[in-house]
């Protein structure tokens, strides 16, 4: 086999997003479990924003805006389920829905107002 050194150097070997995706998950989990509204929302925003950023960076999307909405959709479903089904955890559901709403808002705002691609927040 030829593992030519330098071959793997043709693509980017650094990305700032994974770290924040990985941070967003535990922050969101802690916020939801202990019902700390701002922590839950913040963690989910960090997670969602970084996912959209990473999708853009790796070429899966041209801009992060639709990615934001894409992440928000399943979150909204989960949050609504927390609020209105037998799970019955309305406060925590509200936090998840709030995060989804903010992500959608950011996505829509981005699509409308941004001249070209920019990192999400």
């Amino acid at each position: 086999m030829d593992a030519e050194p330098g071959l793997s150097e043709q693509y980017r070997m650094a990305s700032p997003w994974p770290l924040f995706i990985a941070l967003g998950i535990p922050i969101a989990e802690l916020g939801i479990l202990f019902s700390l509204f701002p922590i839950a929302v913040g963690g989910l925003l960090l997670f969602g924003g970084s996912v959209a950023g990473m999708a853009t960076e790796s070429g899966y999307a041209k801009t992060p805006w639709r990615g934001l909405i894409g992440v928000a959709a399943p979150l909204a479903v989960l949050g609504l389920a927390f609020m209105f089904t037998r799970i019955g955890l309305p406060n925590r559901g509200l936090a998840i829905v709030a995060a989804a709403v903010i992500l959608v808002a950011a996505g829509v705002a981005g699509m409308l107002f941004s001249p070209d691609r920019e990192p999400t927040y």
Binding site: Y11, S15, P18, L19, I21, A22, I25, S58
Partner: peptide
């Protein structure tokens, strides 16, 4: 990746996410 002659892992960024979940864990 070196042994099988790959340039890197199939999903390098997922690879980084997997690692960075560990310190908070």
């Amino acid at each position: 990746p070196l042994l099988i002659g790959a340039d890197d892992m199939a999903f390098p960024r997922i690879n980084a996410i997997a690692f960075w979940l560990l310190p908070p864990a």
